[in-house]
């Protein structure tokens, strides 16, 4: 019994230290966001600002229409994720469970897509978007990312691990492809799907280059472009405003993670039992 107490203590101590280290940059971010410019770089480290500069937040709203940017970012990220899931799940199913001619070759193409950096295909993407009249539209921001090689690969691996006996049972009960996907594969692959969704949202939430290239009006621009306005090359940055803007940009994502945290962990735990 004694040993166990000691173990628990050690464990929680380690966890506390690790989480403290993890949260420190974020605390620093919040602290800088509330400081006045003179207080950012001082000889002595101070965590609490002497005077709370709440005015930093109205100041960033004045610099750019961040409310519109936020709305656009939400629409774009949700749009990308929704279409990604619709495309990726059947594709992963096909690669994991079906046999068709050219399967190996097409799969290699999908894997190659993971390795292509966005910058390498930016000109062809731009030309296609222009030909389709999608410059300066949210659809133009969504479309290049909807076919995710990474998601297909990730889900294929998960689908492959699901025992064939489950598929046989579903078949005997008369389930077709989509019924099997919906009632068997998706519930069993929830952790992977959620993980992929979070990665997708975080990636596209932070995407800067593509939105910068194809959008030119505030109506369709996204948060990261607003954030870029505070990063200056010639004069040094406005750190306080930059941090206030960063806080505004990452807060929704953090809240989303906090809300999903429980489901996230739960789905990991239960999936083992069900499988």
């Amino acid at each position: 019994m004694k040993e166990r107490k000691y173990e628990i203590l050690l464990k929680s101590l380690t966890l506390h230290i690790v989480s403290f280290i993890m949260i420190l940059p974020f605390v620093w971010l919040v602290s800088t966001a509330l400081k006045s410019p003179e207080e950012v770089f001082t000889q002595h480290l101070t965590l609490l600002p002497k005077k709370f500069m709440w005015s930093n937040f109205p100041a960033i709203m004045k610099a750019a229409p961040f409310d519109i940017y936020l709305l656009n970012t939400v629409i774009v990220c949700a749009g990308i994720l929704a279409i990604q899931l619709i495309l990726v799940i059947p594709a992963a199913y096909a690669f994991a469970r079906l046999n068709f001619p050219g399967k190996g070759f097409t799969f290699i193409l999908f894997v190659i897509q993971i390795m292509l950096p966005l910058e390498a295909i930016i000109i062809p993407n731009y030309l296609i978007a222009k030909a389709l009249g999608l410059l300066n539209t949210r659809i133009g921001l969504i479309l290049p990312f909807v076919a995710s090689g990474f998601g297909t690969f990730q889900l294929r691996q998960t689908f492959k691990q699901i025992p064939a006996s489950l598929e046989d049972a579903a078949r005997i009960d008369g389930a077709g492809h989509f019924r099997f996907i919906w009632y068997v594969l998706i519930p069993l692959s929830k952790p992977t799907i959620i993980t992929f969704s979070l990665i997708s949202i975080a990636t596209h939430w932070n995407d800067y280059f593509w939105p910068l290239i194809i959008t030119e009006v505030d109506r369709v621009r996204t948060l990261t472009i607003g954030l870029g306005m505070f990063l200056q090359q010639e004069s040094g940055s406005d750190w306080t405003l930059l941090m206030a803007a960063t806080l505004y940009v990452c807060l929704p994502i953090i809240v989303l993670f906090l809300i999903l945290q429980r489901t996230f962990i739960k789905s990991f735990l239960t999936s083992g039992i069900k499988g």
């Binding site: 000889q43 004069s235 940055s237």
Partner: peptide, 25 residues
């Protein structure tokens, strides 16, 4: 580059080479 004007403002350094672009700040 980005931090240097703040070093000057925070009296971390007595002299610096920098762009005129930093003057307003």
């Amino acid at each position: 580059w980005n931090i240097t004007p703040d070093d000057f403002i925070g009296e971390v350094t007595a002299m610096m080479y920098y762009s005129t672009g930093g003057m307003a700040k």
